[in-house]
């Protein structure tokens, strides 16, 4: 158990059956009362935030979490397979854990996987990836990236994203994986 005096930024704690990471904490001691540690935390599974106040002497259990460096191998429709970069052990991550990130995975892509109570719960893929467009409607001339009009395009991974009208089929583009948005065209691979 972690006592309030051991609270640090980055400490991972278990609250209400979820892992949280402490992002900020402050000692407070009002008037004639007891001392407290005002603590700000982020949920490691869904990113939601929480502020709680703990009395000196209260404690929190450490969260059973660990993360590791992995390499993406392949998917078989049911699960996504990764290899531990240090031990070469292979693991399968269920589809629902990856969600929309699955559309941006390329073979041999380095990823960070977070385990909670031994189960993979989060896959962190690179912020920017470069992928080829395998299908989109023909580009219309005169449109620029700042024009605002967008069209749908299918990537080599099967994912669909919105791109500016001037983008042609078979071009490579850079994508921000945090929100799946188009960033820019990249030169031929």
């Amino acid at each position: 158990m972690y006592q309030t005096s051991e609270f640090r930024k980055g400490l991972k704690v278990e609250i209400d059956n979820a892992p949280w990471i402490i992002t900020d904490f402050q000692f407070v001691k009002p008037g004639k009362g007891q001392a407290f540690t005002r603590t700000r935390m982020k949920n490691m599974l869904n990113g939601s935030t929480l502020e709680r106040t703990y009395r000196t002497g209260e404690s929190l259990a450490p969260a059973d979490v660990e993360d590791g460096n992995f390499t993406y191998l392949f998917n078989d429709g049911e699960g996504w397979h990764f290899m531990n970069a240090e031990t070469f052990e292979q693991i399968e991550v269920p589809k629902e854990v990856l969600a929309e990130q699955a559309g941006f995975l390329l073979e041999e892509m380095p990823c960070k996987i977070l385990f909670y109570k031994g189960r993979p719960v989060q896959v962190e893929i690179p912020t920017f990836v470069e992928l080829m467009i395998t299908y989109c409607e023909p580009g219309s001339r005169g449109n620029t990236a700042t024009g605002g009009a967008m069209k749908s395009a299918t990537l080599s991974t099967g994912a669909e994203i919105m791109v500016p009208l001037f983008i042609e089929q078979d071009t490579w583009i850079k994508i921000d994986t945090r929100d799946g948005s188009y960033v820019e065209r990249v030169s031929k691979k």
Partner: peptide, 18 residues
């Protein structure tokens, strides 16, 4: 979260008033 009234008062002060 607190059995004692004064402890609860101070926690509520720190969380909800200050």
């Amino acid at each position: 979260r607190d059995a004692d009234w004064d402890d609860a008062f101070i926690r509520a002060f720190v969380e909800d008033v200050e």
